[in-house]
Amino acid sequence: MEVRTIKVFTTVDNINLHTQVVDMSMTYGQQFGPTYLDGADVTKIKPHNSHEGKTFYVLPNDDTLRVEAFEYYHTTDPSFLGRYMSALNHTKKWKYPQVNGLTSIKWADNNCYLATALLTLQQIELKFNPPALQDAYYRARAGEAANFCALILAYCNKTVGELGDVRETMSYLFQHANLDSCKRVLNVVCKTCGQQQTTLKGVEAVMYMGTLSYEQFKKGVQIPCTCGKQATKYLVQQESPFVMMSAPPAQYELKHGTFTCASEYTGNYQCGHYKHITSKETLYCIDGALLTKSSEYKGPITDVFYKENSYTTTIK
């Protein structure tokens, strides 16, 4: 009895394709271990004539594949690729409408935090270190965002349907971005203890939790000093293409032309909904596939993004 075979390709990165001759009487799992086709788990399936010449994702289970996976995804987590594939199996079914010149995501599976993050990423200057993220990001900007969303979920250790947080998501993504040249110098002034300067680099240099107003941050924000008295913390120097200011959701007025974009969060910790506000020729609110415009805006804002380049204080 002759062994019926077909020729397929296996890959971990969709760049390096490895030619395989597979036995049609055995499952993919018996031949390769966990195997995925377009995100779908085909591990328990036997090869079919229609699979001839198709590319299958496999887990990096030998040295060659491990090197290829690390170079593309910059992670050695053995569960990463499987999590990416199972997320992709959902995100490829989502709709990605162009809204006001940006790629958004039609609401499904509690994905409003991903839509808000995706919209924000198209408006701030950011370059990702893992080629996987950078490639998928370019495709997302062009309207094909399924891979990018699935990668975000995998890097953030999230599953489809789980509630997510924009600030946490951005923080994970910033860790995989090139923020080497970003720098922030802060000064804390206390009447009792004097003053202390701190220099922050990388992710810490672009994120701040405690106030939404970048102007206020430049002037000074009140913080408790270690001595128990009130101290003032203010920005001395900022070198970065953008800054992200966050605070627990509270009524906040966004003035046209003073910011790049913002995240609105309605609801409580267990259950809520994100919308995205962007400042173009007027203010726009993007909620999944829905767009509304207004000249002014007041609502429960939790993150505001500002364009920056270089700032030095005039406070002496």
Rank of each mutant, 00 (worst) to 15 (best):
S295D: 13
Y57T: 10
A140D: 04
N111D: 02
E162D: 15
C225G: 03
S263T: 13
V12Y: 07
C190R: 05
R83I: 06
S25Q: 09
L17F: 15
R139E: 13
V58I: 13
Q216I: 05
H176N: 06
P241T: 07
G228Y: 01
T91P: 07
N309R: 10
T313D: 15
I15M: 09
G257L: 05
C227F: 01
T302Q: 05
S104V: 08
A231I: 02
R139G: 06
A146D: 06
C190S: 02
Q251G: 06
A87E: 09
N111W: 00
N147C: 09
N178M: 06
S310H: 15
Y137Q: 04
D23Y: 12
F128V: 04
V42H: 11
P241V: 00
R66K: 13
K54V: 13
T192Y: 11
N89L: 10
A231T: 04
M24H: 06
D109W: 02
S246P: 00
L235M: 01
V243A: 03
I223W: 10
P97T: 13
T5P: 11
T76A: 14
C149A: 09
T76Y: 14
N61G: 09
E308N: 00
Q222D: 15
D287G: 01
A154F: 01
A117W: 01
L290D: 15
D23K: 13
G53V: 08
S263V: 13
N111T: 08
Q197C: 05
K54H: 12
C156V: 08
L17M: 10
I124G: 10
Y137F: 12
T313S: 14
L179D: 02
A117Q: 04
S50W: 12
V221I: 11
F148N: 01
Y73A: 04
G228A: 02
G267C: 14
H256N: 15
C285R: 06
T211M: 08
Y138R: 13
S310G: 05
Y113M: 06
F305P: 02
L151R: 03
G33T: 07
Q270H: 15
H176E: 00
C193S: 03
F128D: 06
V206F: 03
H74G: 09
T11Y: 09
Y172I: 15
A262I: 06
W107Q: 05
T169K: 00
T314W: 11
W107C: 04
A205Q: 00
K280L: 13
V8L: 08
E68C: 06
A87F: 00
Y73C: 03
K316F: 15
Y137W: 10
A108C: 12
L65C: 04
S181H: 15
V206Y: 02
G288L: 02
C190G: 02
M26G: 14
K106N: 08
E204L: 09
S86R: 13
F128G: 02
A250C: 11
E162I: 00
V160T: 04
L235G: 01
S294I: 15
N111F: 05
H276F: 13
T199G: 04
H74E: 02
D62C: 06
Y297E: 00
I15N: 13
W94P: 09
K127N: 12
G220N: 01
F80R: 05
M209F: 15
T260H: 05
P34D: 12
G161H: 01
C182R: 05
Y137T: 00
K158N: 02
N268P: 08
K46C: 11
R167F: 06
N187E: 09
E215H: 11
C271V: 09
P248S: 13
A108S: 12
C227I: 03
F70Q: 10
Q230P: 11
N157W: 01
K7D: 13
K183L: 10
S213Q: 05
T314N: 15
N49W: 15
A177Y: 04
K218A: 04
C149Y: 02
V166S: 02
T64P: 09
T169Q: 06
S171N: 14
K7Q: 13
Q123I: 07
S213F: 01
S294Y: 11
V160W: 00
Y138V: 14
E215P: 04
Q251K: 10
L88D: 04
